[in-house]
């Protein structure tokens, strides 16, 4: 058996999207939490915790897009044209979020609140739209003759919309636990309280999605609940439950780093659950990774680069996080 390049590419793209969800997840989450904090200085601190790394975080989204384009052009063209409106809305949300980050510190005092609103609104819209895209994707996109064959408003259904809300909870939880790690004092105490509530919300959301998907999709139900799969996959929900308990414990005992780590694990588990449900499709319900693969010449060419360069990227990204390590305090800049 030769090496399956298509599979390796699927793993790389899944990894890229995962990195995106985690990294941009916490900085979008900070945008979502902005409206619960009124104090100007505390808002500055919140922003400053992600400021030097924000751009790198978003680049993972670009990698996801470009990787899909290069390795699975069919998936890129079908998914992007099927989900046109939510994606455009997401991009516009990201623009508002991005420039607000930036213009906020440049604006006159009087206009500052406008950029705060742009920051909150942009994060909200982008997150919700990403959730809708995810939900519509899980629900499946019909494909005929290498093109999307459904309606252009098919994503406007309860499940995708619910996924939009679910992602809001997940990102907010990531953001809150990140801030626990990077801040102190009143702001941190506020984040502890919020995290506790968000932990419950997130649990409820995960349970709902995990029930809803198999109920709505017989194939997914079959994947999970037939033997012996049930045995193989049961660690996933068990681990989610364990993580939840551990998170409550860590929050109660005022741990600073653990809540964030545990949230990362929960997101990772949810993500693997999704992969189990959808495998081996890249456009559910019917197009598999291999059906959508680019010609092997294309995949091999970019794979060489990806395998060689990704380690370097991880190293200098880590270095940049390291340079800006530690707590951020009121009045701190990174200069």
């Amino acid at each position: 058996m030769g090496v399956d390049i298509t599979l390796i590419w699927a793993v790389i793209i899944a990894f890229g999207i995962m990195m995106y969800v985690v990294m941009d997840g916490f900085d979008l989450g900070i945008g979502l939490l902005f409206f619960t904090v009124r104090d100007k200085e505390e808002r500055d601190v919140m922003m400053n915790t992600v400021a030097p790394v924000w751009d790198g975080n978003e680049t993972w989204l670009v990698l996801g897009g470009a990787g899909l384009f290069g390795a699975f052009p069919l998936a890129y063209s079908v998914v992007l044209s099927a989900l046109y409106l939510p994606l455009i809305v997401m991009l516009i949300g990201l623009i508002f979020r991005g420039v607000a980050f930036e213009f906020r510190f440049k604006a006159h005092e009087r206009r500052r609140h406008l950029w705060d609103m742009a920051f909150i609104g942009g994060s909200l819209v982008a997150t919700f739209a990403q959730g809708v895209v995810l939900g519509a994707f899980i629900d499946g996109l019909p494909v005929r003759d290498h093109a999307y064959a459904g309606g252009s408003l098919d994503w406007l259904r309860p499940f995708p919309l619910f996924c939009g809300l679910a992602l809001l909870a997940a990102y907010a939880q990531l953001g809150a636990t990140w801030l626990i790690m990077k801040t102190e004092g009143e702001l941190q105490a506020h984040m502890y309280r919020l995290s506790l509530r968000l932990a419950w919300t997130l649990l409820a959301v995960i349970v709902l999605v995990s029930l809803w998907t198999p109920l709505a999709h017989a194939a997914i139900a079959h994947r999970w609940f037939s033997l012996p799969n049930l045995l193989f996959f049961s660690p996933v929900p068990v681990l989610v439950a364990l993580c939840f308990v551990a998170k409550l414990y860590a929050l109660a005992h005022r741990h600073t780093v653990t809540p964030f780590i545990i949230t990362l694990m929960v997101i990772f588990l949810g993500y693997s659950g999704l992969a189990i449900s959808l495998w081996p499709n890249i456009i559910p319900p019917a197009v598999s990774l291999w059906d959508a693969a680019a010609p092997p010449e294309s995949q091999l060419f970019s794979l060489v680069g990806a395998l060689f360069i990704l380690p370097f990227i991880l190293v200098y990204t880590a270095w940049s996080y390291y340079v800006f390590r530690g707590k951020v305090r009121v009045g701190d800049g990174y200069h």
């Binding site: 400021a51 030097p52 790394v53 751009d55 790198g56 978003e58 680049t59 670009v62 990698l63 470009a66 990787g67 899909l68 384009f69 290069g70 390795a71 052009p73 069919l74 890129y76 063209s77 680019a294 010609p295 010449e297 294309s298 995949q299 060419f301 970019s302 680069g305 990806a306 360069i309 990704l310 990227i313 200098y316 990204t317 270095w319 940049s320 340079v323 800006f324 990174y334």
Partner: peptide, 26 residues
Amino acid sequence: AGGITGPLLTYEVLTAFFLEAGFLGV
């Protein structure tokens, strides 16, 4: 054309965008 322009864009992300973003903060 994804099999051709896609990998080129992928290389741009890998070799250029990450490089810019990674060192910009510093």
